[in-house]
């Protein structure tokens, strides 16, 4: 997969730009780190890429096709099938077990619909937990896990629908040094499966894992 961004801008009042004329190309199998000072538009870029926010101008092409998503439902479908989100604060549902949290995106995925796919869904979630070495916690609740373990659950949830692009916004912001390295290692490993990993971070450690570092600057 190739995501091309051409002259992307975001402004809320036509005068002050959060992001201006940003152009870049993201390709499969690579780890991209977006860095820069606060307020420079890193998260905004990530949100526009993940269709959580709308651009003011510019163009996004996926595999050469201009992305023209219309309507909230189409955007939701695109987010479901193409992007996986990892958040700084994990946002795990405290009332669901680790396994149930990972299964949340699968409930609406076309391949896993219906009662007959219940086992398939559980199997998929368990595989992911095993991949991130948290399968022994599958019946625990998020508050029973450490920050690093919770973030691994967050990454497993982001991967549940097998998206081609992983978007991570400060994924190690709430973690200690050891867990930072672990999380970046896991994210790096995903590029070997051909996924595009785009991480927004202030953390210098990310440079050790990133194939490309994009530094945004204020005008």
């Amino acid at each position: 997969m190739k995501i091309e961004i051409l002259n992307l801008s975001k402004t809320y009042n036509q005068k002050d730009y959060v992001l201006r004329d940003f152009s870049y190309t993201f390709e499969s199998g690579h780890f991209y780190a977006i860095m820069g000072p606060s307020g420079v538009g890193k998260s905004t870029l990530l949100h526009i890429l993940g269709l959580l926010d709308e651009k003011s101008s510019g163009e996004i092409r996926i595999d050469g096709q201009t992305l023209t998503v219309q309507g909230e439902e189409e955007r939701a479908d695109m987010r479901l099938l193409t992007f996986g989100f990892v958040f700084q604060e994990f946002f795990l549902n405290p009332k669901l077990t680790v396994l149930e949290n990972v299964m949340v995106p699968l409930h609406i995925h076309p391949e896993y619909q219906g009662k007959e796919n219940w086992d398939k869904k559980r199997k998929r979630a368990k595989e992911l937990l095993k991949q991130f070495q948290i399968d022994e916690y599958e019946n625990r609740y998020p508050n029973e896990l450490s920050g690093g373990e919770q973030q691994r659950v967050g990454i497993a949830r982001a991967l549940a629908n097998n998206p081609e692009v992983i978007l991570a916004d400060e994924p190690t912001g709430n973690l200690d040094e050891k867990n930072e390295e672990n999380i970046f290692s896991y994210l790096k490993a995903l590029t070997e499966e051909g996924k595009i990993v785009i991480v927004v971070s202030h953390n210098e450690t990310v440079k050790n894992y990133a194939d490309f570092i994009i530094t945004l600057r204020k005008e």
């Binding site: 993940g50 959580l52 909230e72 439902e73 939701a76 479908d77 695109m78 987010r79 479901l80 099938l81 996986g84 989100f85 946002f91 549902n93 949340v104 995106p105 609406i108 949830r157 982001a158 629908n161």
Partner: peptide, 16 residues
């Protein structure tokens, strides 16, 4: 609110 925001982010439609 945060729960609904997360569901929307990961692809749940509003009507779902």
């Amino acid at each position: 609110g945060r729960e609904f925001a997360l569901l929307k982010a990961i692809g749940y439609r509003e009507r779902q």
